[in-house]
């Protein structure tokens, strides 16, 4: 059916080009999803084998590379402690820095410099933060390898993520809320603590959880600071610990099948923890972020 409008129909070559690009764009998305599906499928398939009680209740003490059994209890404890300590260091510093950038910085020179270096810090390779803690904490100050040293390295990786997430949320808090508070005679710092931060809280929690999810899977900094142990060490301040990512790495480089099986189960556990953190974080944003409520 032809419509008499005088408008030229789209030529065949132009239409073909349009279709071609559309096909390429769809293909690109498919290409991106293939590795994700492959990784998740293999992790679940190979990890399910050793996903048993022993894995979560035993360490690797007195278990050689060839022995079956053994578990990651010591690594899970280590990861939980290290990530918790890292959060305790990084969250207050990150939060306060974001408050400075949004509430006190006022676009001055210092705030622009800090803002720039927060961005640059996001790009610091994880292995470099590990080397820094190794050089500073262990070699210069003479401290031992410990879970806390690992937490220091992880906190450096967390800080910029927390700052950026918090900053973004604080900027979403409506100006009117602050002004209403000032008008009631509330000092600026109490306005921040009682009005601004609570309003932005869900978003901040999301940001912190994403930051935790990011560092929970980091291996390289732990390798250089926490060292490696096969035994349970509940004290993060004394002696080498283990971490779940480190456990996966350590079992992967062993040449036996039972060790690689343990690595897969470790990977499955790690992915479950990280994905869970991610999912919960996104759900919080989705439900309660100030951006959505406005």
């Amino acid at each position: 059916m032809t419509v008499q409008t005088g408008i030229q129909p789209i030529s065949a070559t132009r239409r073909a080009k349009d279709r071609l690009v559309q096909a390429l764009v769809y293909l690109a998305f498919a290409l991106a999803v293939i590795p994700l599906v492959s990784v998740l499928w293999l992790v679940v398939k190979n990890g399910a084998g050793r996903f048993d009680m022993e894995f979560f209740t035993h360490s690797m003490r007195n278990i050689g590379a060839r022995d079956a059994g053994g578990g990651a209890y010591h690594a899970i404890i280590g990861t939980l402690e290290q990530v918790l300590l890292a959060s305790l260091i990084a969250v207050p510093i990150g939060l306060l820095t974001a408050v400075y950038l949004v509430e006190y910085g006022e676009g001055g020179r210092l705030s622009r410099i800090i803002s720039f270096f927060v961005d640059v810090m996001t790009g610091v390779p994880s292995v470099v933060s590990g080397l820094f803690v190794l050089a500073f904490w262990i070699l210069v100050l003479g401290m031992s390898f410990s879970g806390f040293a690992g937490a220091l390295a992880l906190s450096i990786l967390m800080m910029p993520v927390v700052v950026r997430a918090t900053e973004e949320m604080l900027r979403l808090v409506p100006r009117e809320l602050r002004e209403a508070s000032y008008a009631l005679g509330v000092p600026k710092w109490r306005t921040i603590v009682k009005v601004v931060l609570p309003t932005a809280l869900p978003g901040i929690v999301t940001g912190v959880m994403l930051a935790v999810a990011r560092v929970a899977g980091e291996t390289a900094p732990l390798l250089l600071t926490v060292f490696v142990t096969d035994s349970i060490n509940n004290d993060p301040f004394n002696g080498p610990q283990m971490g779940l990512p480190l456990y996966v790495f350590n079992q992967t480089i062993l040449p036996t099948d039972v060790a690689v099986d343990r690595a897969w189960t470790g990977a499955l556990t790690l992915i479950l923890i990280v994905m869970l953190l991610n999912l919960v974080a996104r759900l919080i944003t989705w439900w309660r972020s100030p951006a959505r409520r406005r």
Binding site: L110, L131, F132, W189
Partner: peptide, 27 residues
Amino acid sequence: GDGPFRFASTGAGVVLLAIMAAIGLFL
């Protein structure tokens, strides 16, 4: 009330800069 809070938040920002400088220095 504002003084200490402003000081703490500015300090946190400066700590971040110091960490970046320290990374280079100690390496």
